[in-house]
Design a binder for these strands. Sequence first.
RNA 1: GCCGAAGUGGCGGAAUGGCAGACGCGGCAGACUCAAAAUCUGCUGGGGGGUAACCCUCGUGCCGGUUCAAGUCCGGCCUUCGGCACCA
Length: 820
Amino acid sequence: MEQKTDAKTERYNPQETEQKWQARWAADGLHDVDLRAPGDKFYFLTMLPYTSGDLHVGHWYAMAPSDAGARYQKMRGKHVFFPIGFDAFGLPAENAAIKRGIHPRKWTYDNIDRMRSQLRSMGTMFDFSHEAISADPEFYRWNQWFFVKMFERGLAYQRMAPANWCPKDQTVLANEQVVNGVCERCGTPVIQRDLKQWFFRITEYAEELLDFSKVQWPDPIATMQRNWIGRSEGLEAGFDLDVPGVDEEEIRVFTTRPDTIFGVTSMVLAPEHPLVPKITTPEQKVKVEAYIDQARRKTEIDRLSTERERTGVFTGAYCVNRFNGERNPIWIADYVLLWYGTGAVMGVPAHDTRDFDFAKKMGLPIPVVVAPPVWDGSPLEEPYTDPGTMVNSGRFDGLPSEEGKAAVIAFAEEQGWGQRRITYRIRDWLISRQRYWGTPIPIIHCPKDGPVAVPEADLPVVLPDDAEFAPTGESPLAKHEGFVNAKCPKCGDPGRRETDTMDTFMDSNWYFVRYLSPDYHDAPVDPSLAERWLPVDQYTGGAEHAVMHLLYARFFWKVMRDLGVVKGDEPFTRLFNQGQLLGPDGQRMSKSRGNVVAPDDQVAKYGADTFRCYLMFIGPWEEGGPFRLDGISGVERWLNRAWNIVLTEPPSGQADEAGAKALGRLTHQTVKRVTEDVEGFRWNTAIAGLMEMVNGLSRARESGLVDAAAWSDAVQKMILMMAPLAPHIAEELWFRAGGAYSVHQQQWPTWDEELLRSDEITLVVQVNGKVRDRIEASAGISEDAAKALALASEAVLRHLDGKTPRKVIYVPGKLVSIVV
RNA sequence: GCCGAAGUGGCGGAAUGGCAGACGCGGCAGACUCAAAAUCUGCUGGGGGGUAACCCUCGUGCCGGUUCAAGUCCGGCCUUCGGCACCA
């Protein structure tokens, strides 16, 4: 710490400094990690960017703090792996390619080149030597390998499922290509059409996915995932069919309210329910068929919209409630979903809001079977959906709802009418996409053997570059003769390759596993590296991924575990979801709104350090919020002030003991504060703490003589704490202050609790809860002395107004509260 | 409707139940300068009182409650944002 520079002649030049160190770091491979080197591993992962073009401020908002977190862990002595890759498959590449007449591959890889250089300009410690790109055959080959393994185990299967279909373009549309129910390209109303599609059996893991006991995740995220999985317990029971000439004997129904089973007045089936055509009476046939046809035309979003008036049609058939022998009409209605429960709902008007509205409208009876706590037996004015006491329910009368549920289920099981059942809201994951730019599904359809998996030795099934991916009305790969025609791996007869590609969420399921060994050829991941480095210790990413990506990735991890690829039950031990950075207008940033802030301009103007620190300073990371440039000069000033502090040492000499002690206290207090804030990703307050330290050092310098040792210690620690946040200027200052290269290989400073303590404290004195005085006292003051001091205060005496205190409360080292 | 998050100065925001507004922006005043920029210093929630140091009072979306003490805890609302949307 000897070197001095004349700061009066030199100002901090961010552009020059940043370029210099970035070049040096790259040349030294400072951030290339040897995963086999010894050390206490820490896998710090940030969600990989989609290759949409330029990096925008949102990427910086996500990545700069992650980088700071990774750098901090490294300074804490961890062996840190902080990789980066690119999510490169997907619809936007196809759209952009169609629009601009460039091949999706070229568009994507050009974007990657640009994003890579932008990422480097941020000054991150990303390890580019372990990069993975999902559109590389060496990556997606393992998507296919996983698919084959899952197919063999029955975890990947095919069934009919509706897809958005544009009748004019004769093509399948993704949800985002459907705008207000019409095709975004030609405006034709979109219909639902059944196609044979591939699914992953995520429901197999539903129960395990509900368990968050093995991870440290924020509660709201766990709650959202639990709601998404939507476990509910209830009774599945049969109602006797009372339809002449029909072989089936019963309708299976699922209910979470078995305690209301005596209040059933109707049965409602999904329009697609297989029983519907069988039970519909000839008189009702025309109406029913028209209704089914109509339902078919609606997208699921329309169908489930609560805005819509509820509709339904009577089938003409009846069924019998085994509990009370009552005959109930059977309806169909499109609000009943075939895939949830049993595709049949019992109508209980008294205790279900939508059944109540329907019965009221139709003038149907509304028998009460669960009595509210206060109820005189008169008809209900509104549905009663809370727990109560069972009435009009035969042998179950008088039971409270919860007990009643169990009793009804037990009775049903005894009688052989039904059984306890758990259902989940979550559905199996539809992974088929009728698109070009994705991982080909490695299946060959043989007329004789059906769908046959492509043998492992033949993987990858390479996505051909010369497909016609422009929209023509057919799946792009389906027209590529060279791709489609393939021999059945089983019998050698001519077969047809599957032409669907995989949902791109497949790529994000496991990319972080591939990062460990992106060139490994014998398995998705080198087992020895997987063993050592997984699971991920800290994952960060946008809150918008709270459910979909994070749930799919957990599911897929469990699949990988069961395949023996990885060990342990969860992929991400700790999770942090940052909020969304909005445009200056408070709206979500988008090109069409014209509110996208380009980071490159800001970096050119202020430098990367200022810009990344500003993004961390604007507010709590988890909250996100509108991005305005208003306050960036504050951060710029802070870094410049820090620069000046380091480069111009104060007049040194023998300062008084109190001054040295005060400076030491400031240093240790700041180390404690900043350490705790950085641990909790509270960047805004961490930076505020460092700003205060600079202010404190400035004041100390102004005051004249400063203890040289205390000053040097303070400055050194300050630079170290700045290093994760502002890596370039910290490196330069460290160098100027005579520190050894690199600041990023130094140890994070520690603090001494002893040195935090001040000799003097400020006692706050309250009278009847209001602050009336502040008294300086020695830190070791006794309770009695503190109380005496407070009671002697002039301000207190004034407010006591001659009265005797009833009570005096003492909070050690802080406050005396007097009650009159 | 359900689930989740959040409401604090002109603005971004700080506050283990213990001095509300740290830190920063902006603003005002001053220093430096021929001048400006940059930099530095001081002040800056509203209202009232005092020549002044200061003092009083109101104040964290709204209404209640608990407590010596509430931005913070409890009950009930209102608003905004995000997610899911008839889940039987």
